[in-house]
Amino acid sequence: MRNLFAFIAGGLFGAGLFISGMTDTSKVQGWLDVFGNWDPTLAFVMGGAIIPMFFAWRLTKGRAPVVGGTFPTPPEPRIGRNLVLGSVLFGFGWGLAGLCPGPSIASLSYGGIMHWIFVAAMLVGMYVAPALRDRMDRTLDRSVAAE
């Protein structure tokens, strides 16, 4: 059942990304381009997606997931270095190509070779990220300790 539910969720996600136009990189870059010909679509996509999720989070209270187990723990309030640095790096790449992880997968079937190249590079980035993060954490923590 878990896998069927995951497939349905992924299908809704992929269909939504396709229909909303979020696999069109010019619409994403157009939304980020506040000094150019600004495209408001992404704000409607975000707003639309947050509505069902808001109710879903409320429904989790006092219940358990359909397949059993427990719901994710409440959000952590801690804002760390990695959260900020990672988001800046991600945002920079997002603006550069107009693709983020979800739409990059949804557009693989029709976007052409550049989308496959993007996803390949992204997977390499995801693969090296943990080692890179550990290394950076060690270096920075050592320099803090030395002060």
Partner: peptide, 8 residues
């Protein structure tokens, strides 16, 4: 862009 998105 892909590398930045993956690492970030």
């Amino acid at each position: 862009a892909g590398l930045l998105v993956g690492i970030g």
